[in-house]
Design a binder for these strands. Sequence first.
DNA 1: ATGTTACATAACTATATACTTATATACTTA
DNA 2: TAAGTATATAAGTATATAGTTATGTAACAT
Lengths: 115, 115
Amino acid sequence: MMLGINSEYGEEDLSEELEELFKALGNMNRLILIYNLASGEKEKFSVNEMAKMMGLTQPAASQHLKILKTVKILHAKKQGNYIYYTFNQNALLKHKDKIDFLFGCVFSKCNKSKK
Amino acid sequence: MMLGINSEYGEEDLSEELEELFKALGNMNRLILIYNLASGEKEKFSVNEMAKMMGLTQPAASQHLKILKTVKILHAKKQGNYIYYTFNQNALLKHKDKIDFLFGCVFSKCNKSKK
DNA sequence: ATGTTACATAACTATATACTTATATACTTA
DNA sequence: TAAGTATATAAGTATATAGTTATGTAACAT
């Protein structure tokens, strides 16, 4: 099901991108991860550290990280035995634009036939 | 589970508010509703019209509308036999602020101990 | 009052999500 | 090479979500 609003950023429909983005953000444990990464208290965290943050097992953390990586909120960098996840700043800027566009529509009654 | 970041807007923890907001937005049928309301093509829609938009039954539409009303994306106004849902502009502005705050944290490594 | 319309709520079902434990894989180190 | 560590993936389970049909409720019309 689509809205007919094309994303400026790629192939996929903007509405589907927003759906996936909001789904990824709509989970407390993933928000905790994001806040901790954003806090700047530590430069980087291992997967096991993140698991402890959330009070979950390591596989659960891996699964959350996979979701955040898939929607391009994070990206992964392997360093030796460890994998460090950091923000995908470029993609996040685009995500923010999509959200701003949505709220822009809401606040200013934008026309659906925007292309 | 909380992040210790207090909302400026009320009692509840900001992170929980964001979780609920993102959950509400993370569904294609609810995004369709929002886009149609935002499009300005029609001033207002009945619940049955919204059900048709989404290709769902009327009870399903009611349930989605309830979710959007609960998180204060929409509010309801009864007019005779009909109930019209419109954007809760004030609450939506606050929601946008919360999202902007989150992304602000992400982009500028804000400190968790913001109070 | 009775019937009709519009919506909400209840009860149920199917699927999706978020965990768990067990296991596989990749890298490091002795 | 063998053992240990870090992470990913697989398989299974419990709960949440999103839909359905059936029923309840409020307003309108006759």
